[in-house]
Amino acid sequence: MAWFLFIDESGHDRKASPYEVLAGVAIQDRFLWSLVKELHTTELALFGRRYSAGNDELKGTKILKKKVFQHAGLNVPVNDDDIPLLARSALDDGANAGVKELKGLAFAKLRYVEALFSLCEKYFCRIFASVVEIDAPSTASGGPRKDYAYLFERFFYFLEDYNSPQPSAGHAPAEHGIIVFDELEKTKSHLLIDQTHRYFKDTATGRRRASLVVPEPFFVHSDLTTGVQIADLAAYCISWGFRTSRMIKPARPELAGYAKQIARLRYRADRRAPDKEGAFAVWSIAHITDLRTGVEKLEDIDPQ
């Protein structure tokens, strides 16, 4: 038994996005196929066909952009029963799509995302993310990126808690975590593999976490892998809609409903610091303002 952590990112082009987000969705292996089947059924029911049957991909930048919400607000009546037919017509012949077809397709897109996060909750999925400020100072060290380290840390805490034996439950074999990345350009993929290996092999913290997280990541094509598509939508919604008290960038109010769904999919781990009394909460969505290592921060302090 295992938990797959499907990972994707949003906003790393540093253009319009308010935050850079590295997001992962954890799905237990025994629920993965059931979740995928229900998502495919939902896709057919809303779009009248598989949206991703051609060159289209269910990505946040495509199905949650502002224009989609504008189309959903068009002043033309659309019945719920007509949405699949209208959406399919718009997908099959977008150049000749009328106002009703555009509105039907917009409704289908928005309802699909809502259904997707609801199914994630149904199948006990958990969302993890590192949310990085666009102007966060970067590290010059050759170690793993801090956003990846935080993501692995939260995933490890989740697995650690999940595998904690309950009273009278016995000691079942531990369920491990398997990391699945969206495939990058090959040189970048090799770099990411190298950094991941170094983290799990060369650091004491990484070696401890390798007891539950398999250090060898897998790479897949996002357009062919449902789990990565879920991670992409989560990353987009977190960047543009999810906020904590420390995340002060303006959010798009039309994404508030999805942000509430994501909040319910977070995981809270309670941990104790060796030098402090009491437990503190570690949420699975981390906000990062500085990517530098502790040593780099100290070196940057002006002695004057």
Rank of each mutant, 00 (worst) to 15 (best):
K146I: 08
K109Y: 15
R207G: 07
S168R: 12
V113W: 03
S52R: 14
S34C: 00
P77H: 11
D81G: 07
S164M: 14
L5T: 00
Y199M: 01
A108W: 04
V76C: 13
I179T: 05
H171R: 15
F219Q: 03
L5N: 01
L102F: 06
S168D: 14
R126L: 05
H176P: 00
A273C: 07
V132K: 00
I178Y: 10
L159T: 04
V76T: 15
F158T: 02
G278H: 09
D300H: 06
V214Q: 03
Y157V: 02
S118K: 14
Y51A: 09
R111G: 10
I7N: 01
L151G: 11
E114L: 11
S138Q: 14
V220P: 00
L159M: 10
Y19E: 09
L39C: 05
L22R: 06
T187H: 12
R50E: 13
A72M: 08
R207T: 09
K188S: 12
V131S: 01
Y123R: 04
R49S: 13
I83L: 04
Y157D: 10
G48Q: 03
W33R: 13
G94F: 15
G294W: 06
S138V: 13
G227R: 07
S17W: 05
S52E: 15
T226L: 01
E38R: 14
M1C: 03
H287N: 12
K62M: 12
L58I: 12
D82E: 15
F181D: 01
T41G: 00
